[in-house]
Design a protein around this nucleic acid. Structure first.
Lengths: 242, 242
DNA sequence: TAGCGTAGGTATACGTCGTATAGCCAGGGG
DNA sequence: CCCCTGGCTATACGACGTATACCTACGCTA
């Protein structure tokens, strides 16, 4: 491998075979490897060969592996923010928040292998702050204080990430569980079994919990109805059971 | 090291210096090391020297490191269940649930370094199932269906774990952030800054969010008031702002 | 009591990991 | 023209998880 030592190598037809190495390109490749091979499958050395480069080359753009992980998490949030920008801003504050969270959940579910990394890197990701800031700005006229909006959005974000993490269930040290073992184990718990017969729909559980949380926040924190056409939403959607 | 090859070595006074090696003893030692040195500080080799034993000895009691992590998580949950057993069962369903969650949160906060491991190992821990099962049984007479109770308890558990994980903020790949950097970064987001002046109390946020979630669940899912002395709790605690 | 299987430890080794250190080399500014 | 510097390579080190093989005292049966 690496028959030539030149910055731009060429394939037999003479076209460049290796892109210029930048931080963004490295991070994007790392995200792809992570999606494909999981957390334990992403090593600096494998990343380097994926880039067609010496392992140490990466260290000229990123100080260490932790910074690489930071970059990957940031990339995922950037993906979310890009999608989020496309949405129009109509409807009630509840519509805004639920749509926001749905997009967040979609992006996270698209990268299940990033979740263990993302979930343990909470507050200091700039994209995460961007997330909070824009939602607070968006809903600042809806009758909540900024502080309350921060509580709302960060609690919902925490729950959303945790829920997607639960559904993905990719333990950080390897060792995926087998579904039948779980089922066998659960038979030992009668109340759990009773709660689970008739199946269990995680999507419905998520949606229901979010609506309940919004109800609760509105009930305790909302000062008055400053939002247009937004009265009685909680009561009106009482029938929205799964 | 290991001057004698016998299962029980002795110190100069002749007392045994090494306890018998069992799965439980290994797991307990691993938990102690994890608490002290963090996830990246727990290796099979360090654990073995901590036990005064050859690295491979551990593999006679646990198949691999993932199983060791499973055991540690199980041990933490067992700690929680032991404390939980001591509590009396009086008061309303809200009292039960909030007390339950407070104990869970306390135990988790006692082991911040276990959190990244625990949070990525969600459903198949027997102690976690025990958790759900007993709460469902405890609250089965409170006007919720078993299925709804499962939704409630698992959502609250997910939020609780995520919140403690956020507060601990120990990223899985190393790289702890510095508080001043976070503050500097936050100044770039005006809405966030406005929301955070006057300080931010994570305990209050947690308690408030839990109460709001309980309000919401009660509002949408509770059939009738079968619990004693429990009517109007949500409205009655409206003034319990932080 | 002699023999032996086995449980539970040790010894050694392999391949992989993150990354420190040092060298190499083309492009550009004096 | 020469040298500095930025970006890549080469090599090396120590730690990691764990496969494999070996050893040895204990408890069983005959």
């Amino acid at each position: 491998m690496a028959r030539r030592t030149r910055p731009v190598d060429t394939d037999p037809e003479g076209r460049p075979v290796r892109r210029a190495l930048t931080r963004d390109y490295i991070v994007a490749t790392a995200l792809a490897v992570l999606d494909r091979d999981g957390v334990d499958g992403l090593s600096m050395r494998k990343l380097a060969t994926e880039l067609g480069v010496n392992p140490m080359a990466v260290y000229h753009h990123l100080p260490n592996k932790a910074a690489l992980f930071d970059g990957v998490v940031e990339a995922v949030f950037s993906e979310f923010l890009a999608e989020d920008d496309l949405e129009l801003r109509t409807g009630t504050w509840r519509d805004h928040l639920t749509a926001h969270l749905r997009r967040l959940r979609d992006v996270l579910r698209r990268h299940p292998n990033v979740l263990p990394v993302l979930a343990t890197r909470p507050a200091h990701a700039p994209a995460m702050m961007e997330f909070g800031d824009r939602v607070i700005g968006l809903l600042s006229g809806s009758g909540f204080t900024e502080h309350d909006l921060l509580v709302i959005i960060s609690s919902l974000r925490t729950y959303t990430i945790g829920q997607v993490l639960n559904e993905a269930a990719h333990p950080v040290g390897g060792a995926a569980p087998r579904a039948e073992d779980i089922a066998a184990l659960m038979r030992r718990y009668p109340n759990l079994s009773k709660a689970l017969d008739g199946g269990h729909d995680p999507d419905a559980q998520y949606a229901l919990t979010v609506q309940c949380m919004l109800d609760g926040f509105e009930n305790r924190m909302r000062k008055s109805g400053m939002d247009q056409a937004d009265t009685g939403v909680a009561a009106g959607t009482r029938s929205a059971r799964s």
